[in-house]
């Protein structure tokens, strides 16, 4: 009979009218993110990082810009680490490529900004900078003698001491 389907449909909607609701009131209640959640800001465990720049090389969209300094002991440290969130694909390749597991997401999903220019995140904190200064100073105070064959730095390679800044252009 014509109209039977309409009645069945009306029955379903009236049942849902009195039924349980699926809404989740977001700012008051918050979901916990899953273990592998990709999103938010990048965070770095500064002491674990070996400044190998693999994350920047892995990035498909060149969203990571970092600067590396070398201390008097020829140990590399990060000087700055900028994550351009506007370019980021959130593909997780940087984190999976990180050999010492220093990189991770902070799982904070409330990252909207008012301006496009604010979509740039400085991953290194002031604390890390203080640590870097400390390490640099200590290395400068008692440098271990450089290994003999490597004493004359190659001109093409990254310069060792006086101007220790090398900007990495990842990808191409």
């Amino acid at each position: 009979m014509f109209g039977k389907g309409l009645m069945t449909g009306m029955g379903i909607t009236i049942r849902h009218f009195f039924g349980r609701k699926a809404t989740f009131c977001y700012p008051e209640e918050k979901l916990t993110m899953t273990e592998h959640f990709r999103g938010g800001h990048l965070t770095i465990d500064y002491k674990k990082c070996i400044a190998c720049q693999l994350c920047a090389i892995q990035c498909p969209n060149q969203a990571i810009k970092l600067k590396v300094v070398t201390d008097a002991n020829r140990k590399r440290h990060l000087e700055s680490y900028v994550h351009s969130m506007g370019r980021c694909l959130y593909c997780d390749l940087c984190i999976e490529g990180c050999a010492p597991h220093a990189l991770s997401w902070d799982k904070n999903y409330e990252i909207s900004t008012w301006h496009k220019e604010d979509l740039v995140h400085q991953v290194i904190t002031d604390e890390d900078r203080a640590y870097l200064a400390d390490v640099m100073a200590r290395a400068a105070a008692n440098p271990t003698p450089p290994p003999a064959p490597k004493a004359p730095p190659k001109p093409a390679a990254k310069p060792a001491t006086p101007s220790p800044e090398t900007e990495v252009k990842p990808g191409e």
Partner: peptide, 13 residues
């Protein structure tokens, strides 16, 4: 409200 309740939502809250 009716629309929201039928659509398993809460509506204006």
């Amino acid at each position: 409200k009716v629309c929201a309740f039928i659509q398993v939502r809460l509506g204006p809250n």
